[in-house]
Design a protein around this nucleic acid. Structure first.
Lengths: 172, 172
DNA sequence: TATTGTTATACTCTATAACTATA
DNA sequence: TATAGTTATAGAGTATAACAATA
């Protein structure tokens, strides 16, 4: 814990809690944070990597596509955001002509958010561009490693989703 | 691409670009975004999962710990943030008593950021708490799967770091 | 009385630009 | 003239609270 240390990679010291069989956990914790920081960094400059839609726009459009005509609160729940926040996003995207709000036949308080033709086309283009970025990023990887990462990440997301609905909570 | 679709998981349609041997890439792209959204969501409520330090504070403290007495620009580079942004964080953390700025003997324009005893102790406690969260989150996983995830995530971060210094760019 | 959605407000994080002190 | 760091400012994203319309 000394201040003058200059080790760039973590080396277990006497102060570390060592759990037998879980020696990789300290590395995993570090790599998870590193990964998150990197994703956030790149997300900020989405246009600089050839994407036409920023992260929030793509997220909203994807959710509407997956859900079909959607109520605001359902979108908010799927996105993990407050309804007021999503309302702002939707308003902005409606001004851009990417989606529109139609009356909800079942509830006159609500409206249903749907994609416009432009929104659907832009989403489709961007989705393919994002997949191509992933392909290029991992172009030097063995296909098996990439598939294993896909599988583990899918399981991890499922695990985290489960934890959210349980008495326990999660990492950052 | 029809608006009335309500498939929650992506099913390849006729509009999808299919790359032989890379059929998992669409899933990977989706899971990467899902993962990022989840991490961001939990990061916002760091205190609600038992952490005393928020993500930025922990990031700055970790970087200072790893680097030792650090110049502001070096911290900013490591964190992927602008120097002005880090300057604000450091000022706030100095007010909290978690770190302090001392003169740089080599350059009177600069100062070196170092951890205080309180900062070092808080960082150490929080680091262990974060590792424990990871342990609990994956407590139901086979140890081999967890180790493989650690390994693949480490490789992925290295790959992404390499891409940053090359003519190509990256995902979001 | 409760719920859906919107808006007013405030707070945080971020970068750009202007500034100072030193190199 | 260039660089290290700070601060003023502005913009984006977020949540809370107050509101209107409907259930």
């Amino acid at each position: 814990m000394q201040l003058t240390s200059s080790r760039p990679v973590h080396v277990p010291g006497p102060e570390d809690v060592v759990v037998p069989g879980q020696e990789d956990v300290p590395v995993l914790e570090r790599e998870l944070r590193s990964f998150f920081r990197r994703l956030r960094q790149w997300q900020r400059g989405a246009d600089r990597v050839g994407l036409e839609l920023d992260e929030h726009t793509f997220g909203v459009l994807s959710t509407v596509h997956d859900r079909g005509p959607s109520r605001l609160q359902d979108l908010a729940a799927d996105l993990g955001l407050d309804a007021s926040t999503v309302s702002r996003h939707v308003t902005a995207l409606e001004r851009c002509g990417l989606l529109t709000r139609v009356p909800d036949p079942d509830d006159r308080r609500a409206r249903r958010v749907i994609l416009t033709a432009d929104g659907s086309a832009a989403w489709s283009r961007d989705r393919e561009a994002r997949r191509e970025l992933v392909r290029r990023a991992l172009s030097r990887w063995p296909a098996d490693d990439r598939r294993r990462l896909t599988s583990l990440l899918t399981q991890l997301n499922a695990e985290l989703a489960t934890l959210l609905t349980e008495p326990e909570k999660e990492p950052a």
